[in-house]
Design a binder for these strands. Structure first.
Length: 491
RNA sequence: GCCAAGGUGGCAGAGUCUGGUAUAACGCGUCCGCCUGCAGAGCGGAUCGCCGCCGGUUCAAAUCCGGCCCUUGGCUCCA
């Protein structure tokens, strides 16, 4: 069974064949560090993370690069608010993003390159494009000439003529569809005014802090698209295997990356282009500029990383996803069910009723089916929803086994636990063990003490007092359950 | 205007590439039963759709073909 992926370049789901059969070069278009990351960004991160984990699982040696765009007008617009200069604001947000990523239990990328560290490579690339007549200079700015690159539009199926008729005619560009590789001078206050918040520094002052670099064409700043071409080539290779990004980047960003890179190297830039669907609230996408977002920090703070990942993975990466109270509640239930299944399997194997001579065929065959279904789902264009569904089936089998048997199938349960851990933790990045250490242990003991008091009240028939004790425990964040083996408090 | 993705039960969301192993998965919601002092978790069962509309191909279509309607995204910064 081989991995198949939907390639935006061809519009088809095709067999994945990396350039080298043993390794994969993966690049993800990261974000501009001008605002706190929102759940839509997290959706991209988590899906790329799972792609990375699955490729590892399949035995590939994965090299994963994810950039930060720390040079941008929108960052300048935050000066005075989140820092004293463009570089300072960028640092503030890079730090926040790293924290957010950690909170989501993401595997680390091999490199997190920033634009500000790659200006020499960008300049080299622009020079190459000028040498090869794919670009032209006007008053210290350099533009890419889209008419010089025959394949322009191949990713997004755009026609240059059509783009020209829609584009803005500025004085410097030969064609409206041409785009900047290098921009002369600093940042124009007029360009940031619209992006500023109330407490930001005055536009003129903010723009004075914008970073500029020397170049063969004078002082200036790199264009937006060129960075990814330069960083991808620097840290991976001229041709990479998988380039991932949000669906909103297909045009113009990714189209322009292809044009720049392929014009410069004469090689195919990326073999597979995968695009992550956008996270939408009611009827519109979640976006910083629309202000309709929930930040990663808020969401993870409220729901925790496991619910966050379950939520983000409950829709296949290429589809759009809906963010609403209902969809989040569903994710909470799905996670709860997975966690309960895992926990009950662990508790049953630890029980004195677990026997090595008992065999439950239903449990054992379900484990095998689940592994097969999970693998098939992931190989089918990383279908994380189907993969999660397989694990939910496993939870059902464990529950049935524990409910219906007095003697437990130790070996079968072990296999179920291994499956939860290999696939749920290893591939989906969930964490079943969770927080059962240190502080929680003390809390657990105190809760148990209260529960024993509650038991006395219950035995005495004082249900009113017993329920009060339960309510008090629950008010402190515990969940009280009366099980066959007695009352239990969970956190 | 151009490009792309998508329209499946109350919600959400697989399946569509490779037409039939489907009485349309999984979850949520609702209802009933088991369990329970009650509740929760769990188990079992049920409810709700014939898959945007129209036509075609086929022994057979949610899945293929044609037309139409609608939604979202991109064409300016955006994961």
């Amino acid at each position: 069974m081989t991995l198949r992926v939907t390639n935006t370049l061809t519009g088809e789901r095709e067999a994945f064949e990396p350039r080298d059969p043993d390794s994969v070069l993966l690049y993800y278009c990261g974000l501009t560090t001008s605002d706190p990351a929102h759940l839509g960004h997290a959706r991209g991160w988590v899906h790329v993370d799972v792609m990375h984990r699955w490729l590892d699982h399949l035995g590939y040696d994965v090299r994963h690069v994810e950039n930060f765009t720390d040079v941008n007008e929108k960052i300048v617009a935050r000066v005075g608010e989140d820092g004293d200069s463009e570089a300072d604001v960028a640092r503030t947000y890079v730090q926040q993003v790293i924290r957010d990523m950690r909170s989501l239990n993401l595997l680390r990328a091999d490199v997190y390159p920033r634009v500000s560290e790659h200006v020499p490579q960008i300049i080299d690339l622009v020079e190459t494009l000028l040498d090869r007549d794919y670009a032209y200079e006007v008053d210290g700015s350099v533009y890419f000439d889209v008419t010089a690159f025959d394949d322009y539009g191949k990713l997004s199926n755009q026609q240059v003529d059509e783009l020209d008729s829609q584009g803005e005619h500025t004085g410097e560009k030969r064609n409206p569809a041409d785009f900047a590789l290098w921009k002369a001078g600093g940042v124009d206050p007029d360009d940031i005014a619209d992006h500023q918040h109330e407490d930001a520094a005055p536009p003129e002052e903010a723009c004075e802090t914008a970073q500029t670099w020397d170049s063969p064409w004078g002082e200036g700043r790199p264009g937006w698209h060129i960075e990814c071409s330069a960083m991808s080539t620097t840290h991976l290779d001229d041709t990479i295997d998988i380039h991932v990004g949000g669906q909103d980047l297909v045009f113009p960003h990714h189209e322009n990356e292809i044009a720049q890179s392929e014009a410069a190297t004469g090689q195919q830039f990326a073999r597979y282009w995968l695009h992550v669907g956008l996270l939408e609230t009611k009827d519109e996408k979640m976006s910083s500029s629309l202000g309709n977002f929930s930040t990663v920090a808020e969401f993870v703070g409220e729901h925790g990383p496991n619910v966050a990942r379950t939520f983000l993975l409950s829709t296949a990466y290429h589809s759009k996803a809906t963010y609403s109270a209902e969809t989040v509640a569903e994710a909470e239930e799905r996670w709860e069910r997975l966690q309960t299944g895992h926990r009950r399997a662990v508790e049953a194997t630890d029980s004195v009723d677990a026997h090595t001579t008992v065999e439950d065929d239903d449990l054992r065959s379900t484990v095998d089916e689940v592994r097969e279904a999970f693998t098939a789902a992931m190989n089918d264009d990383f279908n994380t929803r189907e993969a999660t569904t397989a694990l939910l089936d496993l939870a059902g089998a464990v529950n049935r086994h524990v409910d219906d048997h007095d003697a437990y199938d130790y070996v079968g349960l072990r296999r179920a636990i291994e499956t939860f851990e290999d696939l749920g933790e290893g591939v989906l990045g969930l964490s079943f063990g969770g927080e059962s250490e240190g502080d929680v242990r003390v809390a657990q003991e105190l809760a148990d003490l209260l529960l024993s008091v509650r038991e006395q009240e219950r035995e005495a028939g004082n249900y009113e007092r017993a329920d009060e004790l339960r309510d008090e425990l629950e008010a402190l964040g515990a969940t009280v359950e009366d099980t066959d083996d007695g009352p239990v408090a969970r956190f």
